[in-house]
């Protein structure tokens, strides 16, 4: 029953605000770019005809010693659960000013979510697995999306004018803001990355797993 609720809710919302859609593709060095955050701020009343739903709880999983997703975009005030799908323990922490916290993860889902109240970028680490790296992008923007593995992102929003801003954890320089009028064609966003280093991934060989040099 519970799993049906969001669908019902979305349908109801769609009836009130006839949905438009803004889609785009993120590219870096000629290849699709995942984990690009796209934040849309409505510039006219049309965009805010219907305020988006109140922040519902979201989840950022630990799977195979990685944060999944690597980048999570949430609106300010969103509670985020940190389940642990691994059989081993994780010790997730952040020292970012937007949210300082520390959460000790046994297997399963912790009872309490973490509330991200202030806009900003929250960098996540795991005290046990140093290479684990993740981000929570906390924003007051009206609409948020994150590009998928193919670089595609979609914002469901009413027609109107919007200011788009972009953020990627590995960007050498963040892509400039853009103003668009929806309906609009597919947007191409190109980002130059700092370097092509795989960040936040577990080592490719078991040789380098769980050892470091002990220091």
């Amino acid at each position: 029953m519970a799993s049906r609720l969001p669908a019902v809710f979305l349908t109801a919302w769609a009836v009130v605000a006839p949905a438009g859609e803004l889609a785009g593709k993120a590219v870096a060095g000629g290849r699709p770019l995942a984990d690009l955050v796209v934040a849309a701020q409505a510039l006219d009343a049309a965009g805010r005809v219907k305020a988006p739903p109140a922040p519902a709880a979201m989840a950022l999983d630990q799977k195979s010693r990685e944060f999944v997703p690597h980048v999570l975009a949430v609106r300010s005030g969103t509670p985020v659960y940190f389940p642990n799908s691994d059989a081993i323990k994780h010790h997730v922490y952040s020292f970012s000013p937007a949210k300082r916290f520390e959460i000790k993860l046994y297997s399963g889902v912790p009872r309490e979510p973490v509330h991200f109240d202030q806009p900003g970028i929250v960098a996540l680490g795991c005290n046990i697995h140093d290479w684990m790296l993740g981000y929570v992008y906390v924003s007051d923007a009206d609409y948020l999306a994150v590009s998928d593995a193919e670089g595609r992102w979609t914002l469901d929003l009413p027609d109107g004018r919007y200011r788009l801003s972009f953020w990627h954890p590995d960007a050498a320089e963040q892509a400039p803001e853009q103003t668009v009028s929806v309906p609009a064609g597919e947007l191409a966003v190109t980002v130059e990355l700092k370097a092509r280093f795989p960040t936040g991934k577990p080592p490719a060989s078991l040789q380098n797993q769980g050892y470091g040099d002990g220091f």
């Binding site: 060989s205 040789q207 769980g210 050892y211 470091g212 040099d213 002990g214």
Partner: peptide, 18 residues
């Protein structure tokens, strides 16, 4: 009992080098 942190090569299992 541990290695002093001198080597930057021996970061693998049982002090092996990748």
């Amino acid at each position: 009992m541990f290695f002093p942190p001198i080597s930057l090569e021996n970061t693998g299992t049982a002090w092996s080098s990748p």
